[in-house]
């Protein structure tokens, strides 16, 4: 296995890649890094928790959305389908701007909102970013979960009912685990897409890692270096997500036909 990977041409390619990296390290300008390290760490942290929270909220919305479409009555299935179509049919950037500028300009008109406890949060940008990202993930994953719920063989659900399991127990112990196992490879890809969507929040003044890099570019007039470092950071996060999902897949697809 290990020997397969180290074919002679790969050694050559890796040497070339290392050469390019050393050349980039020596000839390009990296002196701005220490000055912006702290801001960068804060930005990275903000990117990561926006990603994690939006995945969590979005996925907990996607489950009912998928279930409603796969097995719900018409009056639940139709709105769920419409929600997914709307989200998937319009650009996320437009959704973010609609929520931030639209809701953001609507809320201050109502005195009771301005006097409420939530107002200090609603004046900041990140709640709108989180809402937009969560709704977007919910829309895409609702569609994925619809397919996953439908792909579980109906006979298994009937068998579980025949064993006397309650409807909730059937859902929790048979339907949901199998649907999740089937959806995992798609969800992994979608999660990387969600990571790639997070820099859009920089357009509504949330200072994530992308916004920090833009600021470096504006302050120092160094163009390529911050972008390259940023690309590397996203590459690493995407790699970690892919590894995490591979581990989840190995763990949860055991014994699945």
């Amino acid at each position: 296995m290990r020997r397969d990977r180290l074919q002679p041409h790969r050694v050559g390619l890796i040497a070339v890649a290392l050469g390019v990296m050393v050349w980039a390290g020596l000839t390009m300008r990296w002196d701005w890094i220490p000055r912006y390290a702290e801001l960068g760490a804060q930005g990275l942290w903000r990117t990561l928790w926006l990603l994690a929270l939006s995945l969590l909220i979005g996925f907990s919305m996607a489950l009912p959305l998928g279930l409603a479409q796969a097995a719900g009555p018409f009056w639940l299935a139709a709105p769920a389908r419409w929600f997914c179509t709307l989200i998937r049919g319009t650009p996320l950037l437009l959704q973010i701007w609609l929520i931030y500028y639209g809701l953001g300009s609507l809320f201050p008109q109502y005195p009771w909102i301005r006097q409420s406890e939530l107002w200090p949060y609603l004046r900041q940008a990140w709640p709108y970013a989180l809402l937009a990202l969560s709704l977007s993930y919910a829309g895409y994953e609702g569609e994925v979960m619809r397919g996953a719920f439908k792909s579980v063989p109906h006979g298994q659900l009937e068998a579980a009912r025949a064993y006397g399991l309650s409807r909730f127990a059937v859902f929790r112990r048979i339907w949901l685990p199998q649907a999740l196992a089937r959806a995992l490879p798609t969800l992994g890809g979608e999660t990387v897409l969600q990571l790639k969507a997070t820099p859009l929040v920089a357009t509504i003044t949330v200072i994530d890692i992308y916004a920090v890099a833009s600021r470096v570019r504006q302050d120092t007039f160094v163009i390529y270096e911050p972008l390259l470092l940023l690309a590397l950071i996203y590459l690493i996060i995407a790699g970690l997500i892919a590894l995490g999902f591979r581990w989840l897949e190995r763990r949860f697809t055991r014994g699945l036909a």
Partner: peptide, 26 residues
Amino acid sequence: GPVTRDLLAVYTTVVRAVPELILILL
């Protein structure tokens, strides 16, 4: 050939992991 395949793998992996916004700017 093996080199073409590896380079293409790098291309598809990098482009699919880095946000479009950064690729557009770069």
